[in-house]
Computed example of a mutant assay.
Amino acid sequence: MNGEASLREEVCRVGASLYARGYVHASAGNISVRLPDGYLITPTDACLGRLDPAKLARLDLEGCQLEGDRASKTLALHRRIYAADDTARCVIHTHSTHLVALTLQGVWRPDDIVPPITPYYVMKVGHVPLIPYHRPGAPEVAERVAERIAGARAAGRPIRAVMLERLGPNVWHDSPAEAMATLEELEETARLWLLSRGEVDPLSEVQIDELRRSFGARW
């Protein structure tokens, strides 16, 4: 239980950090972690800035709730991400301002919402496809995301994030801290792209290949 207790504290710490810095507002956003025998996820309509470790929803591997406050309605999507990517240990969803604004204005490409304009975006985030708009909690979204994960893996360029049109990003990694760092880099790149008004050239293929060879970038 010590490991689970630490994860509960970490989810609350990450939630408070995201809320304090404006990555989430009101009761928007959710965080989950995968356990050996189930999942933890933030409760439905909970403010990520004021989470209680004891009230996080605890679920079994089938998604049946065992304890805590009622689980977020996005649980099905989170479980589908974990099933599609066995390296994922944490999923974070936010309504990050610049990323949502980007989908309102128009993304760079459906398969890449922003171009590779910085080395750290290439190294830390990678390709991020757009998932067309569906209402919050729509079951079709989970299947669309799983298809994107499978397609990216088959193409030899696995992804760790998708962008839900008009809603926000879903980012996953092997810990809450790593997932948060990936989200931060993604939101910052969207902000830079919007500020540049799309008038900056992407990194060249030669520059990207150097990042692949030097740092193992998955672009």
Rank of each mutant, 00 (worst) to 15 (best):
V122F: 00
G198Y: 02
R89I: 01
Q207V: 05
P43W: 07
A101D: 04
H93M: 08
Y121W: 05
R8W: 13
S6W: 11
I149V: 14
S214V: 15
I113R: 00
A83Y: 02
L195H: 00
V171L: 03
A84R: 02
S72I: 13
S204M: 08
P176M: 06
T44W: 03
R218D: 12
L102Q: 10
H78Q: 07
V162G: 03
P136R: 08
L18Y: 07
S27Q: 12
H95R: 11
M180Q: 15
H173Y: 05
R166G: 00
D52L: 13
A154W: 07
Y133V: 02
G3E: 15
R197H: 11
D37E: 15
G151M: 09
V206W: 13
I208H: 03
L195S: 06
Y133S: 06
E185F: 04
D174G: 08
P119K: 06
T42P: 10
A161P: 06
V145S: 01
G156R: 09
D111V: 01
A88T: 13
G3M: 15
E210S: 07
A57V: 07
P53T: 07
Y19K: 06
P169T: 03
G68E: 13
T118R: 13
R144W: 02
G198H: 05
R50Y: 15
I92Y: 04
A84S: 14
A20N: 15
I149N: 01
L40K: 04
V122M: 08
P129L: 01
A83F: 03
E143T: 05
E210T: 07
P136F: 10
A181T: 14
A154D: 14
A57S: 15
A155G: 06
R34H: 02
A26W: 00
L77F: 11
I117S: 05
A177W: 06
A84H: 04
L59R: 03
L66A: 14
E10A: 13
A54V: 11
V24F: 03
E9P: 02
G156K: 12
D111P: 02
A88W: 14
P136M: 07
D52F: 02
V206D: 15
N2D: 13
R34K: 07
A88L: 08
V100G: 01
I31D: 08
M163T: 01
A161R: 03
T74D: 10
H78R: 06
G29W: 00
L40E: 08
A177Y: 09
T97F: 04
L48V: 04
P202Y: 12
A88I: 14
D60Q: 14
A177P: 00
D69M: 12
L203K: 10
R8N: 13
K73D: 07
P176L: 06
G29D: 11
L211W: 04
K73M: 12
R191N: 11
G151F: 00
E205V: 15
A161K: 02
D111R: 10
G151K: 10
D86H: 13
E4N: 14
I81P: 00
L167P: 00
A190V: 04
E184M: 09
D45R: 09
G168M: 09
V24M: 05
A88V: 14
K124P: 01
R144K: 11
N170I: 06
L48G: 07
I81T: 08
I149D: 02
I92W: 00
